[in-house]
Design a binder for these strands. Structure first.
Length: 683
DNA sequence: ACCTTGTGAATTTTT
DNA sequence: TTCACAAGGT
């Protein structure tokens, strides 16, 4: 078994690096700790935290102080908490949770900032109305006020027509908006105009309410991904913005934070938003000024920065005078993989395995076309002896492909093409593919609950309390329970559609109160008929639809419910992260932080609208990196990092299948992977 | 030949 | 939401 013998020499050097971190903590010298993929970054961070507990714990407790440790995700928070064990001295949380915790008490100050923000937004929109070409017709209006008044009065009518085709929409609008045809020549311009008018109106109302002391509190609501400023609710980005403003403006707040938290550690700093680094820099400067001790430690890897919002390699600019500590040892991969990922990142971190037996595994780069995918995967399933205990992880670029290969292509596509998701296309992947149930959309969540219920009642091994909630179960006699189980067992139907029809039939036939209560808890409808259910789906997925389209849209809903149950089941497993197939599919991005023994990456020239020739031009440009700058360099770096993250997941075996012609950039590939071969099925 | 308008498709991820 | 493109108008 390879990767089992640790070399004593490297372990000693690893310890030495850890000592450097401890020394920086002792001397309150702010650091940035850089280490590549699989180096044990989080381990080093946790060791740092443990050192603080051990060496400074008494002092911290005495002064009623604690340590802040912030992460980018909830998953990372839990990982660190687990590694750290139970301690009150260290506050581990996501950035957003911590910042809100620090500032939420300062509502007076927040309110001021909020008022400014509302005014800024109004200004910004008014400015757009004054300058943008699309609004020329509006600017030409002689009586803007009466138009605004009319459209505000007809808000409901407006929204009722919003999903109609352009010509239809125009007719509907003209019923209440007469003599304004000049605005309606271009319907999309009109919609954009009206949206802006509504926003201004909302914001002005909000300002008025603040003035009247009706609204007093600013709220951060993590469940929503965008601000609802007029409802006094801010989302993730604006939280960071407000936090920066409040820390920047009020020295007293800076001091309170500093006095309470003399140590701040940041996990995966490269993903952190610029505003957060600016906040920390303000704190560091102020601590110098008032001579209070503060230690800030950034832990991360610039080469793994794959999101544009992250600070990436701009850290040293935003927060100067950090001491650099880097670690070049790797605890994850075989030498062949290390060799490749070192060539990808090609910077001062050239990783070396801590193992003396890392000469195993294999790496290879092939090109072919889409028709080769299946046989490519089949070949390595055999060659690597893939089974339940030795899975193959396949990385693809888009969620659409993840859905396809995970066998729920139709389900995904049908949900995606509903009016609701057409209009909220940004929410598609969160609401349909999130592994956190609370993040699923209303309908995906409902479908999930139905599948969950169906799975449980059809599996005789499921404990009864898994599908009968406690408050129903506890009042049941043994006989009642038996009766209920018999009824539930009689629910049948293979598809979701048939299953539901059966449920409603039983609901309305048996008058068993407890049984109906179970169904009520499951579906949470106003009324328990199949028709009501469909109507509920309709209002959620196709809001604002016209009477004429009702029948065809109902058909779409039925079609969705009749999608092969195996697809629902696959989706259900995907959401639950049940990997019961030998081959598991992920997006490149989604594998961050993970490691797999066997990895196949499917790659191609393009990735998305702005990513034409993303990968091909990476391999081309790699030969003349020195001459890149500006946006071109940024794009190059982003691709490099994505390639680095995906290749560095592999522990043992790594293969890439490139799905486009590679002849124009063969040399770039060879420089990293050694060889490129056309894929042919082995005889 | 150029401009306007309407339509439909689109990348990943976290809070 | 944003953008490319086709269709249709000038």
């Amino acid at each position: 078994m390879s990767l089992s013998q640790v070399s004593a020499n490297t372990i000693a050097k690893e310890k030495q690096i850890q000592q450097e971190i401890f020394k920086a903590i002792d001397e309150c010298q702010n650091i940035v700790f850089n280490a590549g993929a699989g180096a044990g970054k989080t381990y080093a961070l946790i060791e740092g935290l443990k050192y603080i507990i051990q060496e400074k714990g008494g002092n911290l407790t005495f002064h009623n102080q604690n340590v802040i440790c912030i992460t980018y995700t909830n998953i990372a928070t839990n990982k660190i908490k687990e590694g750290l064990g139970n301690t009150k001295l260290i506050k581990v949380s996501t950035i957003h949770e911590r910042l809100w915790d620090l500032i939420k008490a300062y509502q007076k100050q927040l309110l001021k900032i909020h008022i400014d923000k509302l005014k800024e937004e109004i200004n910004e929109i008014e400015n757009q109305l004054k300058t943008e070409v699309n609004f020329q017709a509006y600017r030409d209006l002689t009586d803007k006020e009466s138009f605004i008044k009319l459209i505000l009065e007809n808000k409901d009518n407006y929204y009722k027509s919003i999903d109609r085709s352009a010509a239809d929409f125009r007719t509907k609008i003209q019923t209440f908006l007469v003599n304004h045809d000049s605005l309606l020549t271009n319907v999309s311009y009109f919609k954009s105009l009206v949206g802006k008018i509504f926003s201004i109106n909302n914001y002005k109302n909000c300002l008025e309410r603040i003035e009247n002391e009706e609204y007093k509190l600013v709220i951060y609501d993590a469940r929503y991904n965008s601000d609802r400023l007029h409802k006094m609710m801010i989302s993730h980005d604006t939280l960071l913005e407000y936090a920066y403003k409040i820390v920047d403006k009020y020295d007293l707040i800076k001091q309170v934070v500093l006095d309470k938290h003399p140590y701040i550690l940041i996990d995966e700093y490269q993903d952190t938003d610029e505003k957060v680094i600016k906040i920390l820099n303000l704190l560091a400067d102020y601590s110098d000024q008032i001579k209070h001790k503060l230690f800030i430690g950034y832990f991360g890897d610039t080469a793994q920065s794959i999101y544009e919002t992250g600070v990436g390699n701009r850290l040293s600019v935003l927060h100067p005078d950090l001491t650099n500590i880097s670690k070049k040892y790797n605890r994850r991969s075989v030498n062949k993989v290390l060799n490749v990922i070192n060539k990808i990142r090609k910077d001062n971190i050239e990783q070396e395995s801590i193992y003396s037996d890392a000469d195993a595994g294999s790496v290879g780069f092939y090109y072919g076309n889409k028709d080769n995918i299946d046989s490519f995967i089949e070949q390595y399933k055999t060659e690597w002896n893939i089974n339940q205990d030795n899975k193959l992880h396949c990385l693809v670029l888009t969620n659409e492909l993840v859905a396809k290969y995970n066998q729920f292509e139709n389900l995904y596509r049908q949900l995606k093409t509903t009016n609701y998701y057409r209009n909220n296309w940004k929410s598609i992947n969160t609401e349909i593919l999130s592994h956190e149930l609370s993040k699923l959309g209303t309908i995906p969540n409902l479908l999930y609950r139905i599948i969950d219920f169906k799975t449980k009642i059809t599996n005789p091994k499921t404990p009864i309390t898994d599908f009968i909630s406690q408050n129903i179960y506890r009042d049941l006699t043994f006989d009642q329970l038996k009766k209920i189980l018999a009824i539930l067992e009689s629910i049948n139907g293979d598809s979701i559609n048939d299953f539901l029809e059966s449920i409603f039939k039983i609901y309305n036939k048996t008058k068993d109160e407890s049984c109906n209560k179970i169904i009520k808890e499951l579906l949470e409808l106003d009324d328990y008929t199949f028709d009501t259910f469909i109507s509920h789906m309709l209002t959620q997925l196709f809001p604002n639809i016209e009477e004429n389209d009702m029948e065809s849209t109902r058909k779409k809903i039925i079609e969705l419910l009749k999608v092969d149950y195996s697809e629902y089941s696959s989706w259900f497993n995907f959401i639950n992260k049940v990997e019961n197939q030998d081959v598991v599919y992920h997006t490149y991005h989604g594998t961050k932080g993970e490691e797999y023994r066997n990895v196949i990456i499917l790659m191609q020239n393009d990735f998305g609208r702005q990513g034409q020739n993303k990968f091909s031009s990476f391999f081309t440009k790699r030969t003349y990196i020195g001459s890149l700058n500006g946006e071109e360099l940024e794009k190059f770096t982003n691709t490099k990092n994505l390639l680095y993250v995906s290749c560095s997941r592999a522990i043992h075996n790594l293969r890439i299948l490139y799905l486009d012609d590679v002849s124009c950039f063969k040399e770039g590939i060879k420089a990293i992977f050694g060889e490129v071969e056309k894929f042919d099925v082995r005889q």
